[in-house]
């Protein structure tokens, strides 16, 4: 490090936090969408898979999950694969993004399921009666409305994703909280270090909240009362 200021340290940490959070959020949305849909299908198998997935990922503390992926998984795999995983460059980053992403995907799945279930039953019937297949019905009719309905709670989940990346400090990811810790260790200024980190978290989340509000307004449907 040497030449940078403490602010540079914090900003570097912030960049890692943002990168991790964005990748984790993409994973959470993608997996959450698939699992959320599975939980609304009439098929018994599909809803069992959805049930198992959600209960597995949401009933274990995030910290334990990250430890599982980071410390336990490489030991469970065949030796070569485990070694490859341990030597992966940037392993804490990938583990954190995927771990937080999967943890959050269970929550996204439950919300999407609620969103889909809140739509009138007749919507499904109308789409079916027009000859749309199940995939087309979800793609063109149910999901566009369900995602609009759950946009406000999804904002909270996005914020949670950002905040949860701080747990990755325990597997050695030097993100914003990690940088604040190291800053405190260099300077013994606990108060200043964590105040600065707090302000950066608040700013980041403020940006996200504002962006999501714009998105909500952008996708709002004229004349449609969305129960806000």
């Amino acid at each position: 490090m040497g030449t940078g200021t403490y602010l540079d340290l914090l900003l570097a940490g912030l960049a890692v936090t943002i990168k991790t959070a964005i990748l984790a959020w993409i994973i959470a949305l993608a997996f959450g969408a698939v699992i959320g849909v599975l939980r609304t299908l009439p098929s018994k198998t599909a809803s069992w898979i959805g049930f198992g997935y959600v209960e597995f990922f949401r009933n274990m503390p995030l910290l334990v999950q990250l430890f599982l992926w980071f410390f336990v998984l490489p030991e469970l795999l065949p030796k070569a694969a485990g070694l490859w995983l341990k030597q992966l460059p940037n392993a804490p980053f990938w583990t954190a993004a995927i771990g937080v992403g999967l943890f959050m995907s269970a929550r996204v799945a439950v919300q999407l399921q609620a969103g889909i279930s809140s739509l009138p039953r007749g919507q499904k019937q109308a789409a079916t009666a027009l000859g749309l297949t199940t995939v087309q019905m979800y793609r063109y009719v149910l999901l566009p409305m369900a995602f609009r309905i759950i946009l406000p709670p999804l904002t909270s989940e996005f914020l949670n994703t950002i905040k949860n990346t701080s747990v990755a400090i325990t597997i050695g990811l030097i993100e914003l909280t990690g940088q604040a810790r190291s800053m405190q260790e260099f300077s013994f200024q606990v108060f200043e270090a964590f105040t600065a980190a707090t302000v950066l978290y608040l700013l980041l989340n403020f940006v996200v909240v504002t962006a999501m509000r714009f998105l909500e307004r952008y996708v709002a449907i004229p004349g449609y009362i969305s129960g806000k």
Binding site: P120, G122, Q123, Q125, A126, A127, T128, A129, L130, G131, L132, T133, Y140, V141, P144, M145, R148, I221, Y224
Partner: peptide, 20 residues
Amino acid sequence: LPKLRSRVGMVFQHFELFPH
């Protein structure tokens, strides 16, 4: 069934237009 259904029109009590 999807093919068969596409050949029969159906109108519902609550219209069921796609709101978005």
